[in-house]
Design a binder for these strands. Structure first.
Lengths: 136, 136
DNA sequence: ATTTTTACTTGCATTTTGCAAGCAAACAAA
DNA sequence: TTTGTTTGCTTGCAAAATGCAAGTAAAAAT
């Protein structure tokens, strides 16, 4: 049970109270862009998050309603994570981080970038639809 | 001279290498939304950043080309900070943090929210124009 | 029955943050 | 011209967060 303290009434500050660290948004990125959904999936990502940090962030994200954790139907020792509506609405933030990051560290994800350049709203909506369909 | 290590080639990860903490984007928010431009200005914000952290973040932001520091023309013991193009292009990220934060912690900045809802692209461009005019 | 998979937890070292006090150059007032 | 104020830091130390390696445990596969 981690307690996140609201530092002010500012919306940017409020968002950063939850998202302002080096790992949280990377977990969400994995769910949104790579359809990852388990502890092992997140652990395998290139940035090499530590096991204790991953467990902590997953707990916090669940606690504050960004994700839902359920037992895998096939394997009862495996858990599957999915995004809630609250988490799905972070997609635009992830997309802007993608656009800026690609510009200052090319090439980035060229296919996604092209889609965003061509139709940002539509691309975001499509990602969000996919994630909504994954809600159990 | 702080060294930021790139954790992977992913654009989201790259963005978070610089922006992934509780304070950096709040300083940029102050510059973008409140036209703040000095150490004292940033220190006065509601979230109460510590003096050493503020000095550290301003140094890092300058070092990596997000902001420029110059001596105030009137007072030679005062410094003025302005955003570079690299920093100005973070405005879309700040706007999405504003939108999400306002939704899950209302009311947020209602005037800005209305402007974004009405014309997101135009609102962002207008903010960016203003910041470009402030480049010395 | 034994090994593997999956998801953690624990202990400890290192790094970062937070807090309070101190410092120094430029400026303003007496 | 001295004295106090403004501005922007730096320093030292305590507390919290992170990172690393090893250990644990339930379920599944062999």
């Amino acid at each position: 049970m981690k307690t996140i303290t609201k530092r002010s009434g500012c919306p940017v500050s409020f968002s950063l109270d939850f998202l302002g660290d080096k790992w949280t948004l990377l977990i969400l990125r994995d769910m949104v862009l790579s359809d990852k959904n388990s502890y092992g999936d997140f652990l395998a990502s290139n940035e090499r998050i530590a096991t204790n940090i991953l467990a902590d962030r997953l707990n916090t994200l669940e606690q504050y309603g960004f994700i839902i954790k359920r037992v895998s139907p096939e394997k009862k020792n495996k858990f599957l994570f999915s995004l809630t509506e609250k988490g799905i609405e972070l997609v635009p933030i992830l997309m802007e981080l993608t656009i800026w990051g690609s510009k200052y560290n090319p090439p980035g994800n060229e296919k996604l970038l092209k889609a965003l350049a061509d139709d940002k709203v539509g691309t975001i909506l499509k990602l969000q639809q996919k994630l909504r369909n994954a809600i159990p």
